[in-house]
Simulated assay, not measured.
Amino acid sequence: MATLRKPNGLILLFCVIVSCFFFQVWGRPATFLEDFMVTWSDSHIRQLEGGRAIQLVLDQNSGCGFASKKKYLFGRVSMKIKLVPGDSAGTVTAFYMNSDTDNIRDELDFEFLGNRTGQPYTVQTNVYAHGKGDREQRVNLWFDPAADFHTYSIMWNHGQVVFSVDDVPIRVYKNHEAKGIPFPKSQPMGVFSTLWEADDWATRGGLEKINWSKAPFYAYYKDFDIEGCPVPGPSFCATNAANWWEGASYKSLSAEQARRYSWVRMNHMIYDYCTDKSRYPVTPPECVAGI
């Protein structure tokens, strides 16, 4: 019979340090309140399934919102969301990352724009880098996002930001700092979500108003997943080239991802600020630099 040897003290210490590091970088929340907190209207956010899922409520009294307890610098965040069903015109369900700074904020946005019954749901993405935004793109989703849960994710590394729906890329923002174009890379960002009324712009530019007779409106979330470098946290994490999201396969889209991305842009994109000559007579520099 083999004998068990007592581990060396230094080995034990090394294992503890490594375990802590990987927990901080790779740890995933088991329940909503483990990594998130309510930021707006606690009475309108309800925990389900022991905190593994939540329901957001919008009525004539209030919308609601929540945010991560920590900020992160690079990584991937994702949530499964089931959007407001039926006549959701004038409602906006948002899932985004924000540095929460006043003048030079960085922000990465998913905004799901409600619709009249039978019309496609539109998802708007936007990128703020060093305080400059106004980079909207809009895509009509190719499925009913209120019928079931779908996964919405933001992958963020030193080379690019990729917005995906069920692992299909719908938006890529590349790092073109070498050409003098701002890229969000120095400010950690928190993870936020809100459900709110915005019928002055959300549906057909504000032509379709919210129908309060259909209220309350509900959106559902589950499978909260954050894999990134927490701030405060290990100072070396954000520059660690060994983080999976900095790997060679995440520096650009794979051939299959590029094919799917082209399909989305050709068949489902309905607005791109890069081609809006009324707003930008001169094409924005990041559009010229390429995705």
Rank of each mutant, 00 (worst) to 15 (best):
P285I: 04
S88W: 07
I181V: 11
G51E: 02
A219I: 00
G90Q: 11
I181K: 05
L113A: 09
K6Q: 13
A248H: 09
F74S: 10
K70Q: 14
L195E: 10
V57C: 09
M79V: 14
Y121N: 07
E208T: 09
K71R: 13
A215N: 07
P120L: 10
Q47W: 01
A94V: 02
W196V: 12
N140I: 00
I291N: 12
V25N: 09
T31Q: 09
R5L: 11
Y250G: 01
D166P: 02
I54R: 09
M189R: 11
C237K: 02
E136I: 01
R5I: 14
G75M: 03
M1D: 14
Y173S: 05
N8R: 12
V168L: 07
C287Q: 05
C20S: 13
M269H: 03
G65T: 06
L10V: 04
P29H: 08
W40H: 15
R105M: 11
S41W: 01
A215K: 03
A67D: 11
T194C: 07
T283K: 15
D199C: 07
V161R: 02
E136V: 03
R76T: 11
W40Q: 13
G190P: 01
V84M: 06
Q160M: 14
G86K: 04
D272A: 02
A89W: 01
F217W: 06
K69Q: 14
D134S: 11
V191T: 02
T91A: 10
W263D: 15
E34N: 05
G86T: 10
V288W: 01
R171A: 09
W244I: 06
K209R: 15
S43C: 02
M1K: 13
V288E: 12
T39M: 03
F74R: 03
F217P: 04
G180W: 08
F74K: 08
M79P: 00
F224M: 03
L141P: 05
H44E: 10
G228P: 01
E177A: 03
G75C: 07
G133V: 07
V231W: 06
V264G: 09
A94L: 01
C64R: 02
L207C: 02
K82Y: 11
W263K: 05
I181E: 11
V139N: 07
K277S: 13
Q124T: 00
Y72Q: 06
K6H: 12
L253I: 01
V77D: 11
Y218V: 06
L195D: 12
A178H: 12
I154Q: 07
W26S: 14
M97E: 11
I181F: 08
T101G: 02
R204D: 13
S262L: 05
W263Y: 13
K222H: 12
G290A: 07
D167H: 05
G118M: 07
V168E: 10
G50A: 12
R105D: 10
C64N: 06
W156T: 06
D272S: 14
